[in-house]
Write a protein that binds this DNA or RNA. Sequence first.
DNA 1: TCAAAAATGTGATTTACATCACTATAAATT
DNA 2: AATTTATAGTGATGTAAATCACATTTTTGA
Lengths: 187, 187
Amino acid sequence: MKHLLRQHIEEIIDLTDEEFDFVLSHFEPVNKRKHQYIVQEGEVVKKEYWITKGCVKSYFLNDDGKEHILRFAMEHWWITDYESFVKQIPSKIYIDCLEDCEFLYISFENRDKLTAEMHKMERFWAKKSKFGRIALQKRILSLLKNSAKERYDLLLEQYPQLFQRVPKKLIASYLGVSRETLSRLGS
Amino acid sequence: MKHLLRQHIEEIIDLTDEEFDFVLSHFEPVNKRKHQYIVQEGEVVKKEYWITKGCVKSYFLNDDGKEHILRFAMEHWWITDYESFVKQIPSKIYIDCLEDCEFLYISFENRDKLTAEMHKMERFWAKKSKFGRIALQKRILSLLKNSAKERYDLLLEQYPQLFQRVPKKLIASYLGVSRETLSRLGS
DNA sequence: TCAAAAATGTGATTTACATCACTATAAATT
DNA sequence: AATTTATAGTGATGTAAATCACATTTTTGA
């Protein structure tokens, strides 16, 4: 069976065995336990992670220390703080593990190298970036036009697994409602 | 004086005179009057626009016909419906002119050609896409963590010009509040 | 395995904002 | 210049959701 990362990349571009080996050689595996961080506020993020196993939350703390969920990510999703990673400035967010996790990560330098040496991978990430932008656009639209109940139903429809794996209060935060309100929406 | 589009591109990559001429040869100018559309729901968007003069709104109509502003754009900003343009699927949004406008546009085919023939420009757009994504992330954060009043103040601080050029009810829609509420926030 | 911590549900109360209704300006359009 | 149309301000009222408070259940880690 093909490597899962290869399958993932080949959804967008085709790779020979040699090419994939070359790509993979730029990644390193890393495991983290539940509650461990992969990104913390204040640090310049040096790595982009591809999740092989587990589930993470990326979030922001406001002045009162209240947590606002930016997004979740799980198996076969990419995650990092793109603002920090792309601009190489200190991060304003945290990303931590909601379960024991396994990642493949690529460093900033290796990603630079890989895209320079292998134009296909530049195209891969360019497309990922475009798709990411479109997904964010949709979320903004949803925040503007849908009620809390509608956003809840849409999320439940799109990612039912999330509701099994992630505490409801985090889903509430992602949707932009209080946990009490979310609890009442469910019924 | 350098062409304004050149100045704009050179904020990210450097170009020789010949290179810029080559880039520019892939663009066409077009003028539109106030209230004219550059993107309409249902059409597959074939062009990306760079605004040389004027101001536009991109928006979505919900089932009740209520308008939700996705974004504004003005001089030296890029605008199109990226979902439709990138995926070449029918658009769900409208973009129309709030003033008489002048654009330089590049067709989907020419952008493809230009990025294929000139790697620098691929990098330019890749970077633009990354920055666009980061900006959207910030807006989501603002919708989650800031009150209507805070979002109003932030927008006023960041784009004071907008409040001179754009009807308040559109700004209200962009912020996700009713025009009555926006009116009361101002004081 | 057992205490502590985290997550969840639900009532009571408060609040920010939407909606409705009407008036007053301002700006297009003929 | 005159008439229509769009924009803007403001009071009254309604409502969705936040907040507060507390009980119950589940999870977790020592």
